[in-house]
Design a binder for these strands. Structure first.
Lengths: 236, 236
DNA sequence: CCTATCCCGACCGTATACGATCCGCTCGAG
DNA sequence: CTCGAGCGGATCGTATACGGTCGGGATAGG
C-alpha cells in the first residue's frame, strides 16, 4: 500500500462489509465456535467503528444461516447440531453432484490435471493425517471439478453450503479417519468418469454418492444405532 | 383485531421485521417491479420509522437475492433477467425434485387427496385461463408434495428459490400457455408414481423432469434459436 | 446547436444518543 | 436453608445528526 489508497471506490469496502468479512473469517477459522456470543458493542469497538455497520453485517450472516439472533438478547454463532449437519450435507450432496455434472463437459485437460494433482496430495497427506489440511485439499479438489459449472446460481448455493458447514466439515474426517482412504479412491474414479466422457447422469450419481457416503460414514460412526437408510438422497 | 394487540412479546415484531415483510410483500405482489428503486428515506417515512430498521431489512433482502445494492446509490428490486431465471429454475428443478422424492414416503393418503384436488382445480382453471391463479395453484400443488420432506434445510432452499423467482414465475405459463395442459398431466403422473410406491429415484427424476420441461418450454418459446441442450440438468 | 464543466440537491454511510429489555445477583421472607 | 421479589448492569432497538458520494441540470465555451 505504498500510495495509501488505490482506486478509491473499488478498494474502500464499506465498514459493513469489513465487519461482515471479519466475523465470517473468525467463524470459518474456528475462532468463534458455535454458541459463541457475538456482542455488537465489543465487535464494534474491536473494529473501531460504531455498532450500526456491525448490526448490518450480523443481519447478513443471519440471513445466511451462520449466526442466530434472538430479540433483545443478541447474536451467537449458529449451533450446527448433528441433524443440521446431516441436512446440509444432504443438500450439498445434491447441489455439488449436479454442479459437478454440469461442469463435466466444460473441464479442460488442465483442470483434470489439477484435480488429479490435488488428489495426489490428498493421498500423500494420508500418511501423516492432518484433518484440517485434508479437508482443505478436499474442498479444493471438488472446487476444481464444479467450478466450471455454467450455472452461477448453483455455484452460489454450493458455496453457501460449504460455508455453512464451515469448520464442522473438518470433523467428518477427524471422526472417521477410515473414510479418508475410501474418499480418495472415489475421487480418482470420479475424475476417470469425467475424463471418459461418461453420461452426465453417471457423473452426477457418482459425485452425489461420494458425498452421501461421507455423510453415511459420519452418521454410522456417530449414531451406530440409527437405520442406515437415514443417508437420504443416495437414491438417484 | 378487536383487542388491538395480543401477547405483546410474540406479536410485536421488531420494526426491522415489519419493514422486511412490508417490502417483501410489495415485491412478491408485483407492486415493486424489478428495477424499482428502494429509497431508504421514503420507505422509512412511509412506515413511520427511522431509516435504520429499513436498512437492515434491505440488507436481509439483499442476502436473499431479492434486491441488489450499489454503494452510495442504493437498493433496487433485483432484475431477474432470462439467464438468472433459467439458473433459478434449474436449481429449483434439482432441489424440488429431491425434496419431493424425500417426502414421498411420508405423504399420507390425505396429502395425496389434497394434491389431486389441487390438480383438479388446475385442470378446471385451464378453460378460463388465468396465469396468476394457475401459478398459485401450481405452487400449492407442489408444496403439498414436498412439504413432508424431512430435511428442513432442503425445504428452506426450495422456498428461497420460489421466492426468488417471485412474480416472474407467473410469466412462464403466460408466455407458453400450451405448457399448462402438459403440466397438469404430468402432475397426475407424478402423484400416481408416488402413490404406487415407486423407487425414490424415479420420483425424483419425474419431479425434476417436470420442472425442467417447464423451463425448456419457456426457453424454446423465448429463444427458439438456442440449442435445446440448454435445458441443463434434465440429465438424471 | 452541441459538448464539457461545475454546482447543487438527493441520498447513502456511519456515529452518537437514549429508552427498552433481559439476565444475574442480592436480600428478605418463609 | 430454600425460594421468590426487586434491583442494577449489560446489551439491544431505534431515532436523530452529520459528513460524504453520486447524478443530473445549468452554464459557459466551441
Amino acid at each position: 500500500m505504498a500510495h495509501g489508497q488505490m482506486s478509491e471506490t473499488a478498494r474502500t469496502r464499506s465498514k459493513s462489509q469489513q465487519a461482515y468479512h471479519w466475523i465470517q473469517e473468525r467463524i470459518a477459522g474456528g475462532e468463534f465456535t458455535p454458541g459463541y456470543r457475538l456482542v455488537l458493542g465489543s465487535i464494534a469497538h474491536e473494529l473501531d467503528m460504531s455498532v450500526v455497520p456491525v448490526r448490518e453485517a450480523i443481519r447478513r450472516l443471519e440471513a445466511e444461516g451462520l449466526v442466530t439472533f434472538e430479540q433483545h438478547v443478541g447474536a451467537r454463532v449458529a449451533m450446527i447440531d448433528d441433524s443440521q449437519y446431516r441436512q446440509s450435507m444432504e443438500a450439498l450432496a445434491l447441489l455439488e453432484g449436479a454442479a459437478t455434472a454440469l461442469a463435466a463437459r466444460h473441464l479442460t485437460a488442465d483442470d483434470l490435471r489439477r484435480a488429479r494433482d490435488l488428489n495426489r496430495r490428498l493421498v500423500e497427506s494420508l500418511d501423516d493425517f492432518e484433518p484440517h489440511l485434508f479437508t482443505s485439499l478436499n474442498h479444493r479438489f471438488h472446487a476444481v471439478l464444479f467450478a466450471a459449472c455454467p450455472n452461477p446460481r448453483l455455484l452460489a448455493l454450493v458455496d453457501a453450503e460449504w460455508v455453512r458447514l464451515g469448520h464442522l466439515r473438518d470433523s467428518t474426517f477427524s471422526f472417521v479417519p477410515g473414510r479418508a482412504h475410501e474418499s480418495v479412491r472415489e475421487h480418482d474414479a470420479l475424475v476417470d468418469l469425467i475424463e471418459s466422457g461418461a453420461p452426465l447422469a453417471d457423473v452426477e450419481r457418482a459425485a452425489r454418492g461420494h458425498r452421501s457416503a461421507t455423510l453415511a460414514a459420519y452418521l454410522s460412526h456417530e449414531h451406530p444405532d440409527e437405520a442406515p437408510a437415514a443417508a437420504g438422497v443416495t437414491t438417484v
